[in-house]
């Protein structure tokens, strides 16, 4: 009797181990399946559209008599929007991260910290709505154009990626050993000199990783940018013009696309996926280097 219950317990033990492993493996399967499905749907594009035209042509006219599927303008717009948003976000984000990790005492730090948590919890659709109602008219009245523009999209994205940069950078700035800073202060450096000569350089790899993670979030963002970006499939590098990014292209055309048009959209998604993968690989490489150096 007792033997039997031990047997059952052992069997339970080994089967639960398998079950738990499966749970862990689901994430891996999902990533693999996502890749397979997107590639399987996207690759047929290149039977009819030369890959060179797809990547380097700025002519996207799927409903024309002779349809063209070139996504170059979307790639440029995606990169432009992402970089611009980084330029806007970086000074605010880094200052906040330095403040939180170096001077965080008292009420203001507490408010700042919960504020950033709240900012991270606001859904992207609400950022988009705010963009339509506030950022678009602001750009139209004070900068130019009709307001629906890559610039508006960048401003909204900049706000959205603030929490990502702040949270990750704060962790790595905090991880800088106090001895380093103390030594710098003891040598007669001011607080600011210590920050930008000692603290920030020591935490640089963590800060760069946070920036790249934020870039990934920005390039993959869809609903917020589609509402404010103008969504016109034209090529323009002027940020006050309307533009369309990779994600905007997918969400706009997918509802009615068929045949080659449909697979061209999946090819667009492939491209986006490759961008994200590259960014992720960079982060992994930086982390590994960090570990080796440490």
């Amino acid at each position: 009797m007792r033997n039997k219950s031990i047997k059952i317990r052992k069997r339970l033990e080994s089967s639960s181990r398998v079950f738990l492993l499966l749970c862990g493996a689901i994430s891996v399967f999902t990533v693999i399946l996502i890749t397979i499905f997107i590639v399987q749907q996207g690759l047929p594009t290149f039977k009819t559209v030369p890959i060179k035209e797809f990547l380097f042509s700025t002519d996207w006219s799927p409903s024309a008599d002779i349809p063209h599927y070139g996504v170059a303008s979307f790639v440029v717009a995606s990169i432009e929007v992402t970089l611009l948003s980084m330029i806007f976000a970086l000074p605010i984000a880094l200052s906040s991260a330095i403040y939180l990790s170096e001077f965080a005492k008292g009420r203001f730090a507490k408010i700042l910290r919960s504020g950033i948590e709240l900012l991270a919890g606001i859904p992207s659709i609400i950022y988009g709505l705010f963009g339509i109602a506030v950022v678009v008219p602001f750009v139209r009245n004070f900068i130019g154009g009709n307001g629906y523009s890559l610039l508006s999209a960048s401003i909204i994205l900049a706000i959205m990626i603030l929490p990502t940069i702040i949270n990750f950078s704060e962790v790595s700035i905090k991880a800088v050993p106090d001895e380093l800073k103390a030594a710098s202060i003891a040598m007669g450096a001011t607080t600011w000199q210590t920050i930008y000569r000692v603290t920030v350089p020591s935490a640089l790899s963590g800060i760069v990783s946070s920036i790249i993670l934020a870039l990934g979030r920005a390039i993959g963002e869809t609903t917020a940018v589609v509402l404010v970006g103008g969504n016109a499939p034209i090529f323009s590098t002027n940020p006050i013009d309307m533009g369309r990014t990779l994600t905007m292209n997918i969400i706009t055309d997918m509802s009615y696309a068929e045949g080659v048009h449909m697979s061209a959209l999946f090819a667009t998604a492939m491209l986006l996926f490759i961008f994200i993968l590259l960014l992720n690989l960079i982060v992994v490489a930086i982390m590994r280097k960090e570990r080796l150096d440490g």
């Binding site: 862990g24 493996a25 994430s27 891996v28 999902t30 990533v31 399946l33 996502i34 499905f37 997107i38 993670l213 990934g216 390039i219 993959g220 963002e221 869809t222 994600t247 997918i250 969400i251 997918m254 999946f266 998604a269 986006l272 996926f273 994200i276 993968l277 960014l279 992720n280 992994v284």
Partner: peptide, 19 residues
């Protein structure tokens, strides 16, 4: 498994939608 989870965390929501 760990890199699978990291990658999954980085996949944009629109791609989840397509999947």
């Amino acid at each position: 498994i760990r890199s699978g989870i990291d990658l999954l965390a980085g996949v944009p929501s629109i791609i989840f939608g397509l999947f």
